[in-house]
Computed example of a mutant assay.
Amino acid sequence: MNWHPLTSTEQLDEILEESKNTPVVIFKHSTSCSISATAKSRLERQWDGASLDHVKPYYLDLLRYRPVSNEVAEMLHVHHESPQLLLVQDGVCTYDVSHMGIGVDALKKKITA
C-alpha cells in the first residue's frame, strides 16, 4: 500500500477533483490510539493483493493536522471519527466507516466501476 500524505487543506480541492477520475480513500489516523493503529495495520495487510491499484489512498495524521481533519469533515459532510476511512468518488464521500468496521472487503463493495 502506497500512502499519500494529506497535510494541508489546499490538497482537499485537488483530492475532490482527482476523485472524479479515480476513487480516493482518506484514512484518518490517531497516532496515539491503539484501535487506530490496529485498523491501519489491518487495512494495509488486506490492501495488498485486493485489486485496489486504481484507488488512491491518502493518510491523514489527525493529531498533527487537526485543522485538515476538521476541513475534511466539513467538506465531505461527515461526522468526525478516529480512526475513519472515507471513500470519495465523483467529488463526494460515498462511504464512511470507523473503528473496527474498517476493512477492504466492505470498501470494495462500495467502489463504483
Rank of each mutant, 00 (worst) to 15 (best):
F27S: 05
I26T: 10
H99N: 05
I111M: 06
V25W: 01
T9F: 00
P23M: 06
T38F: 09
K28C: 04
V97P: 02
M75T: 01
F27P: 10
E74I: 03
Q46K: 02
R66D: 08
V68M: 08
D105E: 12
K110W: 06
S36K: 06
L12P: 12
I102E: 01
I111F: 08
P23C: 06
V72C: 11
K56N: 11
M1N: 02
P57Q: 05
Y65N: 12
W47R: 08
K109A: 15
I26F: 10
Y58S: 12
K40S: 12
T112Y: 00
L86D: 10
L107Q: 10
A39T: 12
S32W: 05
G49K: 04
S30T: 03
V24G: 04
V24L: 06
R45Q: 15
S8V: 01
K108I: 11
E44L: 03
V78E: 03
E44T: 14
Y95L: 02
L43C: 08
R66G: 01
Q89R: 04
V24F: 05
G91A: 10
V72A: 13
I111R: 04
D61K: 01
S41E: 13
S69Y: 03
S19W: 08
E81W: 03
G91D: 08
Q89M: 13
S41H: 14
S30R: 03
C93T: 03
L85G: 13
W47T: 09
Y95S: 06
C93R: 01
T22R: 14
H77I: 06
H77S: 15
Y65E: 12
M75S: 08
H77K: 15
D105P: 01
H54C: 01
T31N: 07
H77D: 15
V88D: 04
H4F: 13
V72Y: 12
